[in-house]
Design a binder for these strands. Sequence first.
DNA 1: AAAAAACCCAACCGCGCAAAC
DNA 2: CGTTTGCGCGGTTGGGTTTTT
Length: 262
Amino acid sequence: MGRAPCCDKSKVKRGPWSPHEDEILRNYIRNNGTGGNWISLPLKAGLKRCGKSCRLRWLNYLRPDIKHGSFSPEEDNIIFNLYSNLGSRWSVIASKLPGRTDNDVKNHWNTKLKKKLLATMDSCFTNINQTPQASISTPSTTTPNIEANYDLGFSMAIQDHGFLPEMPSIVDVVNYTQTGNYTAPEYSSVSNSSIAVDNNTWEFLMDFGPGFTYDQMMSTGIWDNNQDQMSFEEAVINFPTSSFASSAVCHNVISNKFYGNY
DNA sequence: AAAAAACCCAACCGCGCAAAC
DNA sequence: CGTTTGCGCGGTTGGGTTTTT
């Protein structure tokens, strides 16, 4: 036995809203508010609509603070980063984008961003497969060029160790640079959050760490003084445009590609 | 120019949760 | 307490629009 329907479907109008209906709903809410009860609102407002339909129309379209129009690159970036870590929690993602609704963000992801991400990942793997940069047992002394080919930016470390899942959970310090000039060592924990790729003739480890130096980590607050790390989720919400968040995108997508859902 | 395919997005649906009873 | 009710969420769909063939 299913759930009782919220209204009598045969007595309410469905489908697209007319400008007249929009005006009735807008005027009613302007004068009376939503009254805290969407189910009874259409009757009071004089609309032959289901309460849920009224709620959706108001929240997703008529609300005065809704931002209409296309998404900016900054908004895209935030959606990428949050989606990669939170998954399809559209309302949480939308809450970080003023004026955007969960429905907007969801539609934008499904129609635009998902394809963009997949295309980017494809080009990333093409580059990885064509341009091996180093071999095992040789700590990196040159900048791996993967990052240059990949605009989301992640860090890569070449280390002498085996592959997941046997990879030891140790802490290494690896030479790392984003600019081509060595700057500072990055502290890197090697764990299941790192990805090893065996391409038969060459091997490497991609370390999807924060991409920050120790000092940067301390200053962003991602680490506190006790070096307790924020959760991934916390960090990405707090720093949605950081390289930390960007690296998490790569990590999650590539993890899925190699190991399936985790 | 017409048909087909792809894209896009507003709207619907049903479920889980929590507040009210 | 258990039950009912309404809200909010995420998945999905219908159909209008645009692009491609």
